[in-house]
Design a protein around this nucleic acid. Structure first.
Lengths: 348, 348
DNA sequence: ACTATTTCTGTAAGCGATTTCTGAAGGCAC
DNA sequence: GTGCCTTCAGAAATCGCTTACAGAAATAGT
C-alpha cells in the first residue's frame, strides 16, 4: 500500500506506449494521434498521475520561482507590492518567495545566498539599502528587476516613482494652506529612497521659494517609532514647524501619535503629511494627506518584467517612472493667522 | 565566454578525481583523504563551483521550500506570522513561499495546486476559511501545520490561541470598568476563527453574568471597512452599547475611525477593544486595548513543527494553545455614571 | 500496386547530482 | 612474505522527465 509514487513509466506501461509518448501527450498534445492521446489521458486520470515537479524543474533548468526582497513585511505598502507581484506571478504559474531583510543592510547577502539554493528564476529588489543588491550571490541565470533602486547593470528593468513631482505636490499643497515652516521627517539615510526623497523635498522648497531651515529636516529610520520620536522632537523646538512632511506613511502615523503624545492637535496645531498612500492612512484620525503611491502596480509591473525577461533575455531594459498625485486628507489644514505668521526670521 | 555552467564533472576532471569523490568532499568530507579533499576544495574555489540546486532537489526529492497560506498579506498580524516563520525557516536553509488567499474561500485550492507544482516540502495553513484545507491538492509528500484551524487528520501539528480565556479577560476588563451593554464586531462568519471568537465572547458574557443582547452582536468580514461600518451601525442604535469588542485589531482600528466619523469620542463616549495586538494598535489615538496575540511566535512554532516533521514523519502530533493576556490601552475607559446606567432593560 | 511523403511513436541519450557496490591501496600482525 | 582488515576512490546505476533521432506506420500520389 505504500506505492512509491506513480511515474511517467507507470503510465506508459499501463497505456502500452513509451514514456516519450506520455510526455508528448502532456506537453505537445498536437503531435500525437488522437486515439493514442485519449488512451494515455485515460490512464493519467486513472492513476491520477502528476509529473514530478522536481524532475521537471531539473530537466528544464527552471524552478518557476521568483523572489521578492523587501525591507519589511510589516509595512502595508510593501504588503501591497507583495500582493501585486503575487497576483501577476501566480497567474503565470510562478511561485513567490519572500525575502525580508528586516530593514537591515547586511541581510540581503544572506537572503540571496538562500535564494541561490532555491534556484529562483528571478528576483525583484524593492527599496532597501543604498548599496547595489548582491546579485553576484544569486544564481547567474536569475533575472532581476528593481523597484526604486538604481540598476548597476544593463538588462535590469527598473521602476521608480516621481519623487520630484510628488514632493512638489505636497509642498505646494502645504504652501497653499499658508505653511512656510515645514519640517521634514526622513527615513534611514542609508537607503537611496530616503536620500532621494530628501533631495526632492529640498528641491521643492527651493522651487516654491519657501524658507530653508535645515534644523527642521531630520533623518531617522523607517519605523513608526522614529516618526513618533522625530515629530515630538520637531514640535518641541522653540520655533516648531507648522507642518511636517513624513516621507513615508508609517512615519506619518508615528508622527500623528507623537503629536498626540504631547497634546498637539492635527491639523489645528500642526499639519502632517505622509507619502506613500498606505491603506491605513484612510483609517487614522485625522485621515492622512498623502501621495497616490502605486504599490500594487509596482509589484505587478516588476513581476511582469521578470516574466518577460525570462522569455526574452535580451529585451531592452525597461525604465518606468510612476507619477505621484496628491491624496488630500484631514491631516493638513490652513495655517491659522496666515498673515501674522509671515517669516519671523529667515533662518532658525 | 558563454561557459555553459560548471558541473560536478568539471570539478572532477580538473582535480583528477571522479565526480563521486567531489560529491563526497562536499557532502561527507570525513570519508575522503585530506590530501584529495584539499585538492578538490581548491578546484571548487577556483571554478567557484556551486552544485546545481535543481539537481540536488531532484535527487533528494526535497525542495527545501515551505509555504505559508494566509488570508491576507495586508494584515500586520499575518505579517508577523510571516516574519516568525521566515526567520525560523531561513535559519534552517528553507525558503518561504507566500500564498495569499485574499480572504476568499475558493482561492486556497488554486494556491495548493500551484504549490504542488513547486513541490513544497511543507505547508502552514494559518487562519482562513472554515472548510478543511485542500491538502489533497498538495504534493502527497508535503507535511502540514495549522494555525487556528482544526486538523482533519492525525500527523498534523496544530497551534491555537486560548480564545475562551482571552475573551473572558477583555469582557472582565470592560465589566470592571462598569460596562454592561457590550457590542461585538465579528469577523467573516465563514471562518472558524470568527465563529470561535464569537462563541468565546458569548461564553464570557454568560460567565460574567452580563446581559445578553443579541442585537449588539454583529457579524461581518475581516476588514477595516467593516469595523468602521459595523461600529457606526452599533452606535447609531437607539440604545447603543457603551463598549465594543472588535474581534480583531483591524476591525478595531476601523471601529475607531467609525466612531470618529459620527463624532463619538473614544473612550469618553464609547470604549473600544481590539483582539490581536497589532503593532498598529500602539500608534492609534487612543491606543488600543487588546490581547497579547503571539503572532510571531505562532509563525515560528508552526515553521519549527514543519521542519521537525520533515525529519521525523511519524512524530506524535503537536497541539499547542497559547494563552492570551490583556494589553491595556487608552481605548477603554470607565463608564460614566456607572450607577445610573444599571440595566435599562434586559433585552433590546 | 508501388513509391514518396507525412505522421506518428519508440529508442536512447542526456540533465547533474547521489549512492551502492566493488576493487585498489595501504597498514598491520603473524 | 602472506593474509586480512581498513581506508579511500572510481564505475555505474539511479532519480523522472525531455527530446533528438530514427524507424515504423499511415497516407497520398501516380
Amino acid at each position: 500500500m505504500h506505492s512509491k509514487k506513480t511515474t511517467i513509466h507507470d503510465v506508459a506501461r499501463k497505456a502500452g506506449v513509451s514514456a516519450a509518448t506520455v510526455s508528448r501527450v502532456l506537453n505537445t498534445p498536437a503531435i500525437v494521434r488522437e486515439e493514442t492521446r485519449n488512451r494515455v489521458l485515460a490512464v493519467v486520470q486513472e492513476l491520477s498521475y502528476v509529473p514530478n515537479p522536481l524532475a521537471k524543474a531539473f530537466t528544464h533548468d527552471r524552478s518557476r520561482l521568483v523572489a521578492l526582497i523587501i525591507p519589511s513585511v510589516l509595512n502595508a505598502n510593501f504588503a501591497d507590492i507583495i500582493r501585486g507581484a503575487g497576483y501577476e506571478l501566480s497567474t503565470e504559474g510562478y511561485g513567490l518567495i519572500i525575502g525580508n531583510s528586516e530593514e537591515e543592510l547586511g541581510q540581503e547577502v544572506g537572503i540571496c545566498r538562500l535564494l541561490r539554493d532555491k534556484a529562483v528564476d528571478g528576483v525583484i529588489f524593492a527599496f532597501g539599502t543604498g548599496d547595489a543588491p548582491p546579485v553576484s550571490e544569486l544564481n547567474p541565470r536569475a533575472v532581476t528587476a528593481f523597484i526604486d533602486r538604481e540598476a548597476d547593470s544593463p538588462y535590469v528593468d527598473t521602476f521608480f516613482v516621481d519623487d520630484t513631482t510628488g514632493m512638489r505636490r505636497i509642498c505646494g499643497h502645504l504652501a497653499e494652506l499658508g505653511h512656510e515652516r515645514i519640517g521634514f521627517l526622513g527615513g534611514a539615510p542609508a537607503t537611496v529612497t530616503a536620500r532621494r526623497r530628501r533631495a526632492a523635498f529640498l528641491d521643492a522648497l527651493t522651487g516654491l521659494g519657501l524658507p530653508m531651515i535645515p534644523g527642521l529636516h531630520l533623518d531617522g529610520e523607517w519605523t513608526m517609532a522614529w516618526g513618533r520620536e522625530g515629530c515630538k522632537r520637531l514640535l518641541s523646538r522653540p520655533e516648531p514647524p507648522t507642518a511636517i512632511i513624513a516621507c513615508g506613511d508609517h512615519l506619518a502615523i508615528g508622527a500623528l501619535r507623537g503629536a498626540a503624545d504631547i497634546g498637539r492637535r492635527v491639523p489645528e496645531d500642526v499639519s502632517i503629511a505622509g507619502y506613500d498612500n498606505s491603506p491605513l492612512g484612510r483609517y487614522t484620525t485625522p485621515t492622512l494627506t498623502t501621495l497616490s503611491f502605486p504599490n500594487y502596480e509596482l509589484g505587478r509591473r516588476a513581476a511582469r518584467a521578470i516574466i518577460r525577461r525570462l522569455y526574452q533575455p535580451g529585451a531592452a531594459p525597461l525604465r518606468w517612472t510612476f507619477p505621484l498625485e496628491l491624496v488630500p486628507g484631514e491631516s493638513c489644514g490652513w495655517l491659522r493667522n496666515v498673515v501674522s505668521r509671515a517669516a519671523p526670521g529667515a533662518r532658525s
